[in-house]
Design a protein around this nucleic acid. Sequence first.
DNA 1: GTCTATACATCGATAGAC
DNA 2: GTCTATCGATGTATAGAC
Lengths: 210, 210
Amino acid sequence: MTLNTVTEQKIIAAATEVFLQRGKGGARMQEIADKAGINKALLHYYFRSKERLYDEVFRRQISAFFDELFSAALEMENIADFLHTFIHNYLDTVSAHPQVLRFVLWEIEEGGEKMVEILHQKLLERGLPALPIPRLIQRAVNRGELRPVDPVHLMMSVIGMCLYPFIARPIVENLFPGVVVNSPEFLEKRKTEIFNLVWQGIQPQPSPDD
Amino acid sequence: MTLNTVTEQKIIAAATEVFLQRGKGGARMQEIADKAGINKALLHYYFRSKERLYDEVFRRQISAFFDELFSAALEMENIADFLHTFIHNYLDTVSAHPQVLRFVLWEIEEGGEKMVEILHQKLLERGLPALPIPRLIQRAVNRGELRPVDPVHLMMSVIGMCLYPFIARPIVENLFPGVVVNSPEFLEKRKTEIFNLVWQGIQPQPSPDD
DNA sequence: GTCTATACATCGATAGAC
DNA sequence: GTCTATCGATGTATAGAC
């Protein structure tokens, strides 16, 4: 499942590099072979086609990404702790592996089915239910700890806030001189701003008869 | 600046369609020529190369997108009205032209400079200052109408929340059965959830001596 | 398993007739 | 302006020797 021969290992590493630099369509088997120190014929010997080679590279990237993303506990009961941890971990993980975002965006262009499949598999491995995050949010709402927000929309909002600067990095850094998305300063500031906005935004409102 | 001959018009229309369906690299000049009812040679007669043809298509798409986005007044003084209008208009515009997002994401992969250039040009045309939105937010903070948020981060947060479902549409719709990002129900719900979260999240906190 | 050599397809771009 | 025909480069994939 993981790594077979040394050659296979070298191919995967070279292919990952070239796919990231050129994109899926722009990548050339010749360049991958060169970078791996072998020839084109051997690429097709190990992986039947360019499509399968890309598929293998993609699955490894996404899989490692989810592993790191889920390394923080998702089964926290305290919703404040959860949100705080989730936001910090999400930003740290994306920031540490910005290249994964490009694979994800390419995958989305092709329907996103492979990614959803891998996500479900990772949740299963960890014994988590489907949609653990909306479930957590809903329970906090039911306990009256949060105002009645839509759990799915809140989850989308948090993820959208976390991802945006990385997705739009060239535009953001061009539009706001001084911003360096991957700098520790920006990252810490972003964590604080997102958490504060969300946390205050979901507090229960005092009821009229209080 | 806009449209010259009928043939040019047909080429642009066909090219837009093919670029959207296949991507920039995947698009074939032959298919564009076929769809425009002409031959390849004529494509190179009107536009020197595939690169220039793509450039022309991209600029028209982004330009029209910004025009619609800026159709709502950005110079509102009341921050609640502004936020409400901005969120509604942003979601409506993106929802009405989902294809523009794909052009934007491809542009980002190439540095995002063309897009920033067009944005600045559009702001100039309307006599708006650079970064009108952070400027608006900062003034509201200065007047004490909002708690001291970072204007740039707030802007990124709002845009991120608006864009996420459209960027990740295949994943979102696959992960949350029943969600149809482009449906009127989802759109209205999304507007409400974003505005409520943000509005409550940026209210001034009562000071200790109140 | 690893190589060289090449088959086979396709693409962007151009030459040149009309 | 519009066409046909084709060039030259490059791509994936494979055949066959070692």
